[in-house]
């Protein structure tokens, strides 16, 4: 027994090393799943408020870009509004429009307090949390395109898994032809995402618009992802290799919109019920 203790004492540095590394490995593995809740993260208020401070300084350098984007968005929203008013006058005479379907989406605007683009697994911290009604799983978009999905929330902050994350897949659609595929980031260029599973009989063109599809569990249908910038089809390959230039430049992100879907719960529970029935 004495010799055993002596043995441990003699190699204490090595054993401490081993214990610490196992502890770290455990932390890495248990936090690996990108949707899993975790205890330590940057939605923690002390960390988030420091990030908030540093983003506050960075924001000054993005002001003019932000202004242009907001002005453009204003203009397009005004157009939409006008169109809707016109439509409403037409349809008011028709009865039976389900208002829960019409306003099933609600939008919350939030400031980006921390933003990453250069890692393999990127996360964004935003300045609205559970107090603003945000819950994990909600979609996050910007005026220019799809951004990601809420991962964890604290009272005043939430962490968003960016679509620039090598494990995230987004169901996408070619707007022109209506074919479905999957968008996934390959970890290299933050301006570019890959579109997978588009079969050869579809003829995608460079410049085609890619949007989120209605089969999506996260994003509302029709959110812009980007435009095709490069296409390749090997002989005998089953699918195209398509690269999509993201419409939102993730490096210039400073305000995002969180989408609350009022009917998502209903859709999910209906689909779960069907899956159970099939079993």
């Amino acid at each position: 027994m004495e010799r055993l203790i002596y043995f441990f004492y003699q190699y204490r540095a090595f054993f401490t090393f081993l214990v610490l590394e196992v502890l770290c490995a455990w932390l890495i593995i248990s936090n690996n799943s990108y949707q899993g809740a975790q205890f330590f993260n940057s939605s923690n208020s002390a960390i988030a408020s420091m990030n908030n401070f540093s983003q506050g300084i960075r924001n000054y350098f993005l002001l003019s870009d932000q202004n242009t984007i907001l002005a453009e968005e204003n203009a397009s929203l005004r157009r939409e509004l006008e169109k809707n008013i016109q439509l409403k006058q037409l349809t008011d005479t028709l009865s039976g429009v389900d208002t829960t379907i019409v306003d099933r989406f609600d939008f919350v605007s939030a400031k980006v307090v921390n933003n990453q683009v250069d890692r393999y697994k990127n996360f964004i911290t935003i300045s609205k949390g559970a107090n603003a009604g945000i819950t994990p799983g909600m979609a996050v978009i910007s005026p220019l395109g799809a951004i990601g999905k809420v991962k964890v929330v604290s009272d005043h902050y939430s962490v968003v898994t960016s679509i620039l994350h090598i494990d995230v897949m987004v169901s996408a659609e070619l707007k022109r032809t209506g074919h479905f595929g999957t968008a996934q980031w390959k970890g290299r260029n933050p301006q570019e995402i890959n579109l997978l599973y588009i079969p050869p009989h579809v003829k995608p063109e460079i410049g085609d618009t890619v949007i989120t599809s209605g089969y999506n569990a996260v994003f509302p249908p029709g959110i812009m992802i980007g435009t095709i910038s490069q296409k390749e089809l090997d002989k005998e390959a089953l699918f195209y290799e398509l690269k999509v230039k993201l419409s939102q430049d993730f490096q210039k992100l400073s305000y995002v919109t969180v989408v609350k879907s009022r009917l998502k719960h209903e859709q999910d529970s209906l689909e779960q019920a069907v899956i159970k029935m099939e079993k």
Binding site: F17, L20, E21, L23, C24, A25, W26, L27, I28, N31, Q38, F40, N41, S42, N44, I47, M50, N51, Q116, R119, K121, F123, T125, V159
Partner: peptide
């Protein structure tokens, strides 16, 4: 904690 990558930097540092 700040890099949102729990355990990663700690592993490398140790």
């Amino acid at each position: 904690l700040f890099y949102e990558s729990l355990g990663l930097h700690a592993f490398a540092c140790v």
